[in-house]
Simulated assay, not measured.
Amino acid sequence: MPLNKSGLEQSIKNAFKSMRDGDTDEEKGLDALCSKLADAVDTYVKTAQINYTAGLSAPNGPVTGVFNGTLS
């Protein structure tokens, strides 16, 4: 599954909306916002998919070579 940019954008938007709706002090609100943004980025990055194309070999020994592929 490729990276979901629109999902990340929605998560960030929701994090900022929750700040607007909160009644906490500034420091607690900032901590909550940072936590939600970090969760959004973490989720986004974990959806990355690596497509291996070539470059590695292991004929009866350790894997050697240069990994060739793309990140989607």
Rank of each mutant, 00 (worst) to 15 (best):
K5F: 13
D31V: 02
D31G: 06
P59M: 02
V66R: 01
A15C: 08
K36D: 15
T24N: 06
F67K: 00
G65N: 03
V63W: 11
Q49I: 06
K13V: 09
A32T: 14
Q10H: 11
D39G: 08
D21T: 08
S11D: 11
I12N: 11
I12Y: 09
L37A: 08
G7F: 03
L56H: 06
Q10C: 02
L56F: 09
D39I: 03
L8W: 10
V63A: 10
Y52H: 12
K17N: 15
L56M: 09
M19Q: 12
N51G: 08
T47R: 15
K46G: 10
V66F: 00
F16T: 05
K5V: 01
K13A: 10
Q10W: 04
M19G: 11
G61K: 07
D25K: 01
L30K: 00
T43W: 03
K36G: 11
A15E: 10
L30G: 01
K46W: 11
T47P: 07
E9P: 02
Y52W: 13
F67R: 00
Q10G: 06
E26K: 13
A32P: 13
G29D: 04
G29M: 04
D23K: 12
A32Y: 13
R20N: 08
I50V: 11
A38D: 14
I12C: 14
G55K: 11
F16I: 08
T53V: 07
